[in-house]
């Protein structure tokens, strides 16, 4: 529960720094919270960080595409700040920290974790937007046929 509230704060306030307008901030917060909660639960159940990040990002992507269509705002606005709790900033820093401390094999493993988390997030968000595009295309075809 504590983590969920922190995930909410941790996605709303980066959005303030990214200058997202006030009326969208709540949606960004919900987006980040849903994504992080999914990540947290998946990580607990399967124990795989990258997979959990992917599922979390997929939820962030689906939510932001959906909200973007309702509010008529680009989906990036939601997904950039909504994915902040998942994004591997700390992992990137820790990699460099290990290099500074001369723990090179730790640095290598942390570095791979950073890159694979970033890949997982990007793939998750892109997959969600691809699904939305395919669905709206099919719907368009369907309505044209039945007119």
């Amino acid at each position: 529960m504590k983590a969920i509230i922190m995930a909410f704060l941790g996605s709303v306030f980066p959005a303030v720094l990214f200058n997202v307008k006030r009326s969208s901030l709540v949606w960004v917060g919900i987006c980040g919270t849903l994504g992080y909660t999914t990540y947290y639960l998946t990580e607990k159940i399967t124990g795989k960080i990258t997979f959990a990040t992917f599922i979390g990002a997929l939820i962030v992507g689906v939510f932001s595409e959906g909200t973007a269509r309702i509010l008529k705002i680009p989906a990036t606005i939601f997904s950039v700040s909504g994915s902040t709790p998942l994004v591997p900033g700390i992992a990137a820093y820790t990699t460099i920290q290990y290099v500074v401390e001369n723990k090179l094999s730790n640095a290598a493993s942390k570095g791979i974790e950073t890159l694979s988390s970033a890949l997982a997030i990007a793939f998750g968000i892109m997959l969600a937007s691809a699904i939305f595009r395919v669905v709206s295309k099919i719907r368009l075809k369907y309505t044209v046929k039945h007119k």
Binding site: V80, P88, G89, A118, L119, M126
Partner: peptide, 15 residues
């Protein structure tokens, strides 16, 4: 240091 870190930049790079 969370506000300094380039997490979003890494993800955008892959996008």
């Amino acid at each position: 240091i969370m506000i300094l870190l380039p997490g979003v930049a890494i993800t955008n790079a892959i996008k």
